[in-house]
Nucleic acid binder design. Sequence first.
DNA 1: AAGCTTTGACTTTTT
DNA 2: GTCAAAGCTT
Length: 750
Amino acid sequence: MNLDDLNNAQRKAVTTDNSHSLVLAGAGSGKTKVLSSRIAWLINTGQASFNEVLAVTFTNKAAREMVSRISMMLDRDMKGFWIGTFHGLCHKMLRLNWREANLIQNFQIIDMSDQLSLIKRLMKSANVNESKYSARDLQKIINSYKEKGLRSNEIDVYDSYNKYIAEFYHLYEHQCIRDGLLDFAELLLKSYDLLKNNQTIRNYYQERFKYILVDEFQDTNSLQYGWLRLLIGNSTSVFAVGDDDQSIYAFRGANIDNMSLFDKEYAKGNIVRLEQNYRSMGHILGAANSLIRYNNGRLGKKLWTQEGDGEKVLIVEKHNDLLESQWIVDEIKNIVKNGIKQDDIAVLYRSNAQSRVLEHALFLSGISYKVYGGLRFFERQEIKNVLAYLRLIVNRNDDSAWLRSVNFPIRGIGTRTIESLFEITKNKNISLYDAVAYHSGRSKNNLLMFNNIISTLEESSRKLTLVQLIEHVLEFTGINAFYKNEEETDRLDNLKELVTAATIFSGENNFSEIPASLLIDDLKENLDVSLNNNIYLEQEKITPLLSFLSHASLEAGDNQSESEQSSVQLMTVHAAKGLEFKVVFITGVEEGLFPHENSMSDNSSIEEERRLMYVAITRARKKLYITMANSRMLRGQVRYSVKSRFISEVGEGNVIFVKNKEQILPNNYLKSNSRFTSNSHQQSNKLSSGNTNFVDINGKKFVIGQNVKHKKFGDGTIIKLIGHGEESQAQISFNNCGIKTIMLGIARFE
DNA sequence: AAGCTTTGACTTTTT
DNA sequence: GTCAAAGCTT
């Protein structure tokens, strides 16, 4: 490995001998390079061996990227190297110490949709229909408690609602334990509890991991920080890398304060700033720097480049969303004509709903595009159906899996039957599988047949490899036959893809010849290691099947197969984090959309929106466009809005404004009679003559930008108008009391 | 138990 | 406007 291709700041970070350090790594400043080089350097100089290093990331992709970089720098066996996501590493720790963690050996991981259906099921059985909370609410509440490290018995019960939540949370905990299921947050919490409560294990890991490296530190939540704390012993050195300006995940528990907390508790001023940017041209960086200065309480950082100013950022204002999309499409055509590949172009938006208009315009123009987001491979219905059978093979008491499989394919087992089984499970505190024995009724035979399928499959699994088992399940359960009969070729293809995925997985993990459900005790003979044994022997002592199921939950896969042709990339700003493109369009940059209206009430949310805009801007390498529309269709209503405050924050010197010059177009402009997706889609033609940004109500006119004086709220400016006629509303930014949405028909103005 | 109609939510999301 | 899920009908 070679330290010469690092700049001074990078080299300083890589070779620091401070016990703890915090690296503030700006966008495009070579963060992954520094992390990988640091690990390679520690190994190369003999300061550490791989089994003494723990590296933690947020995504599997980031972990893979780091492994591949390190292997390019060093030709060494990485055995014993713990690298992965927080969840992946916690999972590993729990598999190795399942007894001490009070788990069953076959515990399974459930994803968010499994968790949601479990919660719905429990709500029904607990008769809480008229509760104030929806299943989604409860899911959010439970997860956020877990992310704060709180169990159901640790919640402060100060009123009846909290009491209800604590009770329901307890019910959910109980069911998860009985089914042997761990949700994502629970992986972290269980691992945290294990380290906290078991001194032997805590000491072992503290002594073992001399070097801990953390990526994307600004995205850690309180529990993750707590978990890291428990791993830090007297001789541990922590290297935390992050960028407070790119913290955009507060809504899922990320705590930006963890960075300054880490500085206070550990790094103690050992901060390295990576500010030289290798990605974007000067004006783009200028815009980013200018914008982010409007945030308070930053750790502070200013990006610079050696590459020159480049082109100015183009800011484009259009009358409406259709014209905005059309303009982008025309511009893309020009760019492509000038030799830029479509792969190098990204169109970003704040929320997924915005992709529709863009897709439409792209489709009509024949430009190929790819939309990121949506269902991932292992989240697909047909895949989950197969996984449910596999879960039952591992643990027949997994009620969630049993319910999913029992009537798929159809076996004549309906809701009535299931309800009566639920009664039995409640009374006897047993699983649905076991409850069948006590059931009497017309469906009894069907139920017995189903349970028989499960036990027969379990038998077979002892003799088959993982791939053979999956192929067997597809045939034996009738899943293949069902989809063939329905002529669902896409789903059949995905099932084939599942077999391929299992083949690849088996190969990568070197157990293609081991039967999928070999008794775990037999496997342990060969692979077991106790804490005192030689760590190089350490392997996950789980069967291929269990391992594959964990893999499926922890890594949901891609959402789309690779397309052969070069295509324009469409995604949310969140999804674009960590990526870069030659040309970037940031679209819909309007008050209410970006910043989003739900984030406009308090300053910390606005600051997060601003960081999101900062992330969006710093994705661009050569050319950046920021576009906005005066009106757009949203939730079936025309909404008028003004340009986002962020547009005025990017600094006049870095930008060129292109004002709307066109006349409002006649009705038939963009009129579409072609179909744009397989399910035919009628584009509504809303470009009527009323399409301006004013509203007329009871003879009074209201225009965006107009100053008004409200009887109660005082002076303010209209920033957005929604809807027509009696129903129309205005969003008004009041000088003294923030932004309020007001019904114009009712409001009293002076 | 399948097929139809109505209702309600709707920012961002990885594990 | 769109989608999924719940509710109702056959």
